[in-house]
């Protein structure tokens, strides 16, 4: 076994954490280190911890939650085969299994680098829901106000984008955000933030937003050149 005390992986459901070290303090330390490195990416996302057979105590659960809270991450689910742990986790109001429809959406193979991976979703993304993904995100459906998509790569919404979208979350300024109907409350590309002018109803045509000349510019999609 290698020395990494934890593995962290972005999935469609949230961040997947697998503790490897059996020393809880080491696990927390490694997690905090990882969260610090990409704070902006993780903020507001949710975490799933896969425990296998290992037992978790109330104190350990509490310390994990406290750490996640500092980074504004929700402990969403703890997957465990240990009955005592399952009971403990449930009594803390945390899921112990993933809702069925999302379970199938496991992350693609780790063979490809993140920027070549893509997540494909077909749903309405509703207020309070968020997708955090290291690669590109394609959504067939609407992103409603109060919902957000944060992607390391590009974001394509085949529908109306009314919520928040952040492309290039790791700093890639070449990424773009496309939507059939682009009327987001806010878009971010890498470190840039764009806000729709108040009262703008958006264009009736599909638009692409990207960085041009140091700011985010949205223009109607068309054949260029």
């Amino acid at each position: 076994m290698d020395e990494t005390p934890i593995t962290l992986k972005g999935t469609a459901d949230g961040i997947l954490l697998k503790p490897r070290s059996h020393v809880w303090a080491t696990v927390l330390e490694a997690l905090e280190q990882a969260l610090k490195e990409a704070e902006a990416f993780f903020r507001g996302s949710r975490l799933i911890m896969e425990l296998g057979n290992r037992e978790l105590t109330q104190d350990q659960l509490a310390s994990l939650r406290a750490l996640l809270m500092r980074y504004d991450i929700e402990l969403w689910a703890v997957l465990s085969e240990n009955e005592t742990t399952v009971r403990l986790v449930r009594s803390n109001g945390v899921l112990t299994r993933l809702p069925k429809d999302t379970e199938a959406k496991k992350s693609p193979d780790d063979v490809l680098p993140p920027e070549q991976q893509a997540l494909f979703l077909q749903q309405t993304l509703r207020s309070g829901q968020s997708i955090h993904y290291a690669g590109n995100v394609t959504l067939i459906g609407d992103v409603n106000p109060g919902a957000e998509i944060v992607a390391g790569g590009n974001i394509i919404v085949w529908g109306t984008l009314r919520g928040v979208a952040h492309a290039g979350a790791f700093g890639d300024e070449e990424t773009a955000i496309c939507a059939l109907d682009l009327q987001p409350s806010q878009i971010r590309i890498a470190g840039y933030i764009g806000r729709a002018p108040d009262g703008r109803r958006g264009s009736a045509e599909p638009e692409v937003a990207r960085i041009e000349g140091g700011q985010i510019v949205a223009e109607v999609w068309g054949r260029r050149g």
Partner: peptide, 19 residues
């Protein structure tokens, strides 16, 4: 109203997510 619709959307999202 925008606020009521926003909250309704949130509730529908919770119902869907938890099947």
């Amino acid at each position: 109203e925008v606020t009521a619709v926003r909250d309704a959307d949130r509730v529908i999202g919770l119902l869907e997510a938890e099947e």
